[in-house]
Write a protein that binds this DNA or RNA. Structure first.
Lengths: 202, 202
DNA sequence: CGTCGCATTGATATCGCTCAAATCCGGTGG
DNA sequence: CCACCGGATTTGAGCGATATCAATGCGACG
């Protein structure tokens, strides 16, 4: 991996935070932490992608959040004693782990950092509510289109398919079979286009 | 209404915030703001209850959040130019409206307030993700039980039914008919108990 | 007393879930 | 190079749960 592939450390974060981070590598499907674990770190994704998931009684997985390169995750754990979900590496990933108590300290001492942290949480909250809105849609097609409209980039609302379609199905609260059929129908009807590794409106 | 009925101003919030608030009364079904409106205020519920909703293309309403007495809402709008959903009074309500720019200023100047605001956002984020988890459950009964487990208080996870069951159905992402039938079945099976204005595990 | 909205129940249809099977593809080992 | 394997992808058949449409009772409120 080249340096060019690696995202720069978010430029708007204080230099004081950087040295606190310890770099750790994870393999696909590794658990960074599990529900109930004591909160020791918050994380920044240097490379790869993680998902935060809970598991229903029947064992089915529900992805609450996806964290990609350059994004923090487990920020909501800062005020909690233990993690409330599992963090799973969707692919091989490199993280920076920041000790939670030191981040708390920095939040208390560095107003600029606190202000940035507020902005971060606000974005996360928006994203979570958008996901609520999406899951409240009853039809699979509506959820896919909502996903494209809210997560997509560019004139055709394209989204990169980083993981498998099964992952996307999990994120949309659908079975993968339903998603396959829905995508096939939307494509047949000329509503969406599918590339090798992306999806977008026609 | 007596003063005893009214919640005190959240004691952990700085005195500096208090004088910024302007008290406004709303009737049931009034819109405090609408999606797309310029963000001018964030709000604290002195009395009553509000919901934040978006509307699907077919006109169906999706409640993203419920704000009750003593709670802030539209905190996530602070960093936005316009509101991203409608705020609707579920019942007659009294609010304190805080000018957004003055709250931003206070966040920049008062580290303690910023720290409290972070705690507030963190709780909201947890709540939103819990709602995501709930909506990802496929059966109506599972959603009801999840609601009781996560929102309920006390040994029987009781929840007060402030609004109508139709409101609850909207919050659970169900039709009211489904909710009625599900509650009837759960009650018949001895899983939940229903009072006049509350719901709990048997 | 009439109206309106909530609560409740019934009948039916539809959509997504479940189980099943076939294909494809990348990786692995002989 | 080829056989094999596991996982993703895809399509099929059938079922069941929820949505939908409809009707009724009920209480509040004017």
């Amino acid at each position: 991996m080249t340096h060019a592939m690696r995202p720069s450390f978010p430029t708007d974060l204080p230099a004081a935070l950087r040295p606190l981070g310890r770099q750790i590598a994870y393999s696909k499907d590794d658990r960074v932490f599990r529900k109930g674990d004591t909160v020791r770190f918050v994380f920044l994704v240097l490379d790869g992608a993680l998902r935060l998931s809970r598991f229903a009684r029947d064992g089915s997985e529900i992805a609450l959040h996806r964290a990609c390169r350059g994004e923090f995750f487990a920020e909501a754990a800062l005020d909690a004693a233990c993690y409330h979900c599992d963090a799973i590496a969707s692919q091989a990933s490199t993280l920076l782990a920041f000790p939670a108590d030191q981040v708390r300290e920095l939040l208390d001492q560095d107003p600029a950092f606190a202000r940035q942290w507020i902005a971060l949480l606000t974005r996360q909250l928006h994203a979570a509510r958008t996901r609520v809105e999406r899951l409240a849609l009853k039809s699979a097609a509506e959820r896919v289109l909502h996903y494209l409209h809210t997560e997509g980039q560019g004139p055709r609302s394209e989204v990169a398919l980083t993981g498998s379609l099964k992952d996307l199905a999990r994120e949309l609260g659908l079975t993968h079979e339903s998603l396959y059929r829905t995508l096939a129908r939307l494509q047949r009807d000329g509503v969406v286009t599918r590339g090798e590794h992306d999806l977008g409106l026609a």
